[in-house]
Amino acid sequence: METSIVGVGVGITDRFRTVAEEKSTRIENLAPRAQRLDVKVTHRAYHNGGREEETVELTVTGKGPVVRAEATDGDKFVALDLAVDKLAEQLRRAKEKRVDARNHPRGAKFEKGSGALQGIDVQPASVEVLHAVATGEVPIQNSDSEEAEYTPVVIRTKNFDAEWMTVEEAVDRMELVGHDFFLFIDARTDHPSVVYRRKGWDYGVISLTATAPPAQELAS
């Protein structure tokens, strides 16, 4: 497996490179089909309080979905250990799910009568969640502004190509990248949808249904 290590705002020492390459062996053992491991180390310094931290991002690519994990600490070696542990756990869980799928074939089934999804632990979003999304009640921190007021939620802007898949496949992809949500196009309905983590192995799903505006609104 090829390993690439880059630093953003920080130099990569020979010692860190050696340690990272040694730990890549653990990843390769868990993901034998992986072809490349990208290690990105980002240094951030905060003027308020003089705090500094290192973020290590790991990305595994090869035959199959991309797998990602990241961790932050004041010491980049500690951040590397934490990120490797997260990535290893995601790979282990994905392997267990593949084995379970072979032994117990499963699949999401849509019940037209009740509108429920059978065969997967997914629940519709609650009224409170839908209201929060609709009214924009989500704190946003502009990471480019050093003077921005602190908020525990940081929203990054990223663009991805649309992917059509089932809800079950979206849940699996969410687990592989280690996120709490995953955006996709539902192959069953062609609606933009999001699966998100609830408690344990319980998940939720939010779908958008768009209707064309009246002709008079388009004319105006």
Rank of each mutant, 00 (worst) to 15 (best):
Lys97Gln: 09
Leu87Met: 13
Val138Tyr: 15
Gln123Leu: 15
Ala79Val: 03
Arg93Asn: 09
Phe110His: 10
Ala125Val: 09
Asp73Val: 00
Tyr150Leu: 14
Asn103Met: 08
Gln123Val: 15
Lys76Leu: 01
Asn103Cys: 02
Val129Asn: 12
Gly64Gln: 08
Thr61Ala: 11
Thr166Gly: 15
Val66Phe: 05
Ala116Gln: 13
Arg98Glu: 09
Gly113Phe: 10
Asp85Thr: 10
Gln141Leu: 12
Pro139His: 12
Ala88Asp: 13
Asp172Asn: 09
Ser114Ile: 10
Asn142His: 10
Val171Pro: 07
Val78Asp: 02
Glu89His: 09
Ser143Pro: 12
Gly136Ala: 01
Val133Asp: 08
Val99Cys: 02
Glu70Ser: 14
Pro124Asp: 11
Gly64Cys: 07
Val127Phe: 01
Ala170Pro: 09
Thr151Phe: 02
Val138Ile: 15
Val129Ala: 15
Asp81Trp: 00
Val133Thr: 04
Pro152Lys: 14
Val129Tyr: 13
Asp121Leu: 08
Val122Phe: 05
Thr72Phe: 02
Pro124Arg: 06
Leu82Glu: 09
Glu168Phe: 06
Val153Gly: 05
Val67Asp: 00
Pro152Ser: 14
Glu89Gly: 05
Val171Trp: 04
Met165Ile: 07
Lys63Gln: 03
Arg68Ile: 00
Ala83Phe: 00
Gly107Trp: 04
Thr72Asp: 02
Thr157Tyr: 11
Glu128Val: 01
Glu89Thr: 09
Asp85Glu: 14
Val78Leu: 05
Pro152His: 14
Lys86His: 08
Asn142Asp: 15
Ser143Met: 07
Glu147Met: 07
Pro105Ala: 01
Glu147Phe: 10
Gly115Lys: 13
Ala162Ser: 14
Pro124Cys: 08
Glu149Met: 04
Val171Met: 11
Lys112Trp: 05
His131Phe: 11
Ala101Arg: 08
Arg102His: 10
Arg156Ala: 10
Gln123Phe: 14
Ile120Cys: 12
Arg98Asn: 03
Asp100Arg: 11
Asp100Asn: 06
Asp172Ile: 11
Thr157Ser: 12
Asp100Met: 05
His104Tyr: 07
Leu82Asn: 10
Glu163Tyr: 02
Gly136Pro: 03
Lys109Glu: 14
Gly136His: 02
Asp172Met: 13
Tyr150Ala: 15
Val154Ser: 13
Val167Ser: 04
Glu147Val: 10
Glu149Ala: 14
His104Phe: 07
Lys158Trp: 00
Thr61Asp: 04
Thr157Val: 11
Arg92Thr: 14
